[in-house]
Design a protein around this nucleic acid. Structure first.
Lengths: 209, 209
DNA sequence: CTTAGCTGACTGGCTGGTCAGTCAAAAATA
DNA sequence: TATTTTTGACTGACCAGCCAGTCAGCTAAG
């Protein structure tokens, strides 16, 4: 049994997946717990505070997830880092949608923006370090600028999520596109081998749920 | 003076910029017109119908805008097409935000999704044609697949908007990143000359007075 | 007894949508 | 032409439902 505040944060995630951010009510969250709506107000002063706490909670898990991605070579690690966001997870689709809703609210909310900035900064930095390692290591081209590539990939990954949520563009197609980008633009061209040890031969048209 | 329905659509855009999608009320829209809230219900049965009509209205302007972009060479035209969405305009930031809010609602609304799909399809197709022309024309590498590149750029452009709205990532930096991508990945490497002249662009919802 | 945790019942504000009725202009009628 | 009727555009007032947040009070543990 976890303590109430943590249980509420967990319930918030469930409720977000089921109802989305826009339609999220305190009652929805309460319904995912053994507590009443009033109890949630006992632990978190207002809805806004709860959401901020939730984002902070989420960031901690995010940080762990992107820290030290799987893979031997920088190319593999870079792909793993991209996939960690792009690849579909069990509860992902609905949750990604809710996150995009929150992103879209960030201009109206300084505190949200600040939190999202942390996610972005952490991700860009993680990518940058790997690219930097790849260049030092000799597996990436000499010309590549880690800062530029990191920002480019971060932007692209944002696009993957948005386009997936917005028009249902399949994630695996996007994933393959990034892998191709990494192989062709970043890697020094030795053999045509792709160090991209990702899902072999994914093709277009996977009907995503 | 325009007719009432058109005036209401215009008012919808203004209200969206001022209040965002999430906080948009029928009263907000009415306040941007000489009409009352009830009058808007006279012309559009419900809020949802009005929003759909607004998206249709927007699509018409979007189609015209991306049709036949400025530029002599395919590379120039491609950059113009990218810039037409990426480049900032006076009232753009707020409106881009509202559009992202709508995108984030698309999973909950079949009709929205259908409209957004049209935007995406039209844009991808416009890019594809230009890339195809570039390959035929010899200015782009032989290996490039117009479909893949078009989808890649469409995804990236989505990311540009999302990252701009979500964490305030500067648009011009993104624009430069795409230009670099086009120069280095698409263009056959003759002289390092970049045909990439960034032009004053337009985008999804240029509010014409 | 005190207090932390919790709750049902309630409130106040907001918002989409309705409705009876106003009004001017077009259409019909004499 | 003069008068009446119809109709399209519009409106203020109102309603029903929803939801964040409040509060007095309950209970069990220390």
């Amino acid at each position: 049994m976890t303590d109430a505040p943590t249980e509420i944060l967990h319930a918030t995630q469930c409720a977000l997946c089921e109802h989305g951010y826009a339609d999220l009510t305190m009652q929805d969250i309460a319904d995912e717990t053994d507590l009443s709506k009033a109890s949630i107000h006992y632990h978190y002063d207002c809805k806004h505070d709860l959401l901020l706490a939730f984002l902070d909670h989420l960031y901690e898990r995010f940080e762990e997830r992107i820290d030290d991605p799987d893979g031997e070579t920088p190319a593999e690690r870079l792909c793993a880092l991209v996939d960690s966001i792009v690849t579909e997870r069990s509860d992902a689709p609905a949750f990604q949608t809710a996150l995009l809703e929150i992103k879209a609210q960030s201009p109206y909310d300084e505190a949200f923006r600040e939190r999202l900035q942390r996610f972005d900064d952490a991700y860009v930095e993680a990518v940058r370090e790997i690219v930097e390692a790849g260049v030092a290591d000799g597996s990436f081209r000499e010309g590549v600028d880690p800062d530029v590539v990191a920002s480019f990939l971060a932007t692209f990954v944002n696009g993957v999520q948005t386009r997936h949520v917005g028009v249902g563009h399949p994630l695996d197609e996007s994933a393959e596109a990034v892998h191709t980008y990494i192989d062709e633009t970043l890697l020094v061209e030795s053999s045509t081998g792709n160090a991209t040890g990702s899902s072999g031969g994914v093709e277009i048209g996977g009907a995503s749920e």
